[in-house]
Simulated assay, not measured.
Amino acid sequence: MEPHRLDEDVLTAPALFVYYNQPVTLDMWPGLLFGDGGEYQEGSAGGSAVGPMPTSPAETLATAERRLRAAGWQVYEPTSTVLQTCAAPPCEPQQIQTVLVARRGDTVFRATFNDPRTYNSYLNVEAQRAAPPLVLPTAVPAGLVGGVLAWLVFAWASRRTEGRRGMRPLLGLTLFLWWVPALLTTPSLVGHHLDEPHPSWHPLWEWLGQPACSLLFLIGAGCAILLAIALVPRRDLRPLTVSVG
């Protein structure tokens, strides 16, 4: 079988977390805040192969699965996505993208077989560090404790704002801006994880809609600060009058 050669050297991420494959710097904050925060992700190493595929897609996929298993990798069931369908004949063959995922130790390997008619490369490979084993058992109780504390804080704020004009809308706006990103992203991520194998789950910040919706979170944080300032008990500076007799 003819080997698949990458068109360039394997590119390694310069940092553990990257933005457009570059270390995050302060001058990137406009992109992170204004709709492009989804490009913030964990670093990985990878490369691509261009030109005609040396063998058929089915044979290439079968060979990759066989060699990965022989090398001690846990190989997951490949998933395929139809990129383009035909509305009316005559039709060209469907354009299909297939993803093969495997894991060995703390490394996750992903091979994406593309249709050359759609992409410049027919094969993209990527290797990434998996989340440490203690992340899940640690994150679950931490999330439960954080949820209880958040509920107590907002319950206190709700009682303190009762009957105070202008405070209830500010509390509602804070809750809305902080919860809407998570409510929008969590269902889509759940469906995504059910559709494709994920030996390492997407990071927690993506489940919270961050940093793609970080602007909403920051505005909500500003509202929370204003609310906290308004709810802080203040000393009554008026002189105390005591009547005798």
Rank of each mutant, 00 (worst) to 15 (best):
R238Y: 05
S200I: 02
A58V: 12
W201V: 08
A62Q: 13
P78D: 02
R235N: 05
R5P: 01
S56V: 02
C91L: 13
V135S: 10
T79Y: 05
D115S: 02
V10M: 14
D36Y: 07
V18F: 01
F176T: 14
P132N: 06
G245F: 07
L226N: 04
A111E: 04
D27E: 13
A224E: 00
I225N: 04
E59W: 04
G163C: 12
G105W: 03
A142L: 15
T60C: 06
Y40S: 01
A127V: 00
E2F: 04
A49T: 03
Y40C: 01
G46D: 00
V244F: 10
R238P: 03
G191S: 09
L237H: 08
D7M: 07
A58E: 15
G51D: 10
S188E: 12
A111M: 11
S80K: 03
V244D: 05
A212R: 01
A102V: 11
P14M: 11
C223W: 01
P57M: 11
R129L: 13
W179G: 14
L32C: 07
L170K: 09
L136H: 11
A224F: 04
E92F: 05
T107C: 03
T55P: 00
P203V: 11
Q95G: 04
P211L: 08
A155M: 11
T12D: 09
A230G: 08
R66T: 14
E77Y: 00
L149A: 15
A15M: 09
E42H: 08
Q84M: 12
N124Q: 09
A45V: 01
L227H: 02
E196C: 00
D9L: 09
S188Y: 08
A70S: 12
S56Y: 04
C86Y: 11
A88K: 11
A64M: 12
S121Y: 09
E196G: 00
A88R: 12
Y20I: 07
Q41E: 15
T60L: 15
V82Y: 05
R235C: 01
L173C: 07
S158M: 11
A139V: 12
W151R: 14
L226I: 04
L226K: 06
Q84P: 00
L227C: 03
Y20N: 11
V108P: 00
L6F: 15
V125G: 01
Q97L: 10
L189H: 03
A64Y: 03
V244C: 04
S121H: 12
A87G: 08
